[in-house]
Simulated assay, not measured.
Amino acid sequence: MRISRDKLNKLAHTVADTLAEIDEVDFLEDRNTIRQEARKILEKLLTEETRIDAAARLKISSQRKIIVEGSQEWDILYRKYYNDEVKKLGL
């Protein structure tokens, strides 16, 4: 899934702001550094999700039989292959 840079920044701001509101959380760095690290982590997760999606789609397209995207069979296989890829990563 592709998220715009602005939306990713907004999400990172929300993460940093939410953490700052928690009494049990103390920042060792300034809030901007926390926001930047949150953004890096989110970018990495989204990149990994894109790779997992592509791997699942590739497995479906490599089937002997043509499976139409949006069909029930395609959806079942997509979920199966997607979950298999996630398990490979240990998530």
Rank of each mutant, 00 (worst) to 15 (best):
T14S: 10
I34P: 09
L46R: 00
V25D: 10
D84Q: 03
R79P: 04
K10S: 15
N9K: 08
N83E: 15
D84A: 08
E69S: 15
I22V: 15
L8P: 07
R31F: 00
G70Q: 06
R79L: 10
L42P: 01
R51I: 08
E43P: 00
V68E: 04
I3F: 14
R5K: 09
D75I: 01
G70W: 04
K65W: 02
N32V: 04
S4A: 06
K87A: 13
R5Q: 13
L91D: 06
Y82G: 09
E73L: 05
L58S: 10
R35T: 07
T18L: 03
D26L: 09
A55M: 03
V15S: 11
L58T: 07
D53I: 13
A38F: 08
Q36I: 09
R79W: 02
L45K: 05
A38L: 08
F27S: 05
K65M: 14
R2Y: 09
R35G: 10
N83W: 00
N9T: 01
D26K: 11
Q72M: 14
L89A: 01
L46N: 13
L19I: 02
E24I: 04
N32S: 13
A54D: 14
E24C: 06
I34K: 14
K65S: 05
Y81C: 14
Y78S: 03
Y82C: 05
Y78V: 00
I52C: 12
L28P: 00
S4L: 01
Q63R: 11
E21F: 03
T18Q: 05
V25L: 01
D75L: 00
T18C: 02
M1V: 11
N9H: 14
R64E: 08
D17W: 09
R64T: 06
V25C: 08
I67S: 04
E24D: 07
R79C: 02
T50H: 01
R57H: 11
T33L: 04
G90C: 07
D17L: 08
N32K: 11
Q72T: 12
E48Y: 03
E85T: 03
I22Y: 07
R35S: 03
D75K: 13
K88Y: 09
T47Y: 02
L42T: 05
E69H: 06
N83L: 15
I41W: 02
A16R: 00
A12S: 12
I66Y: 11
K7V: 00
R57I: 04
D26V: 04
L8M: 15
D17Q: 12
M1W: 09
E24G: 02
K7W: 03
I76H: 12
E73V: 06
S71K: 02
H13W: 04
T33D: 06
F27E: 06
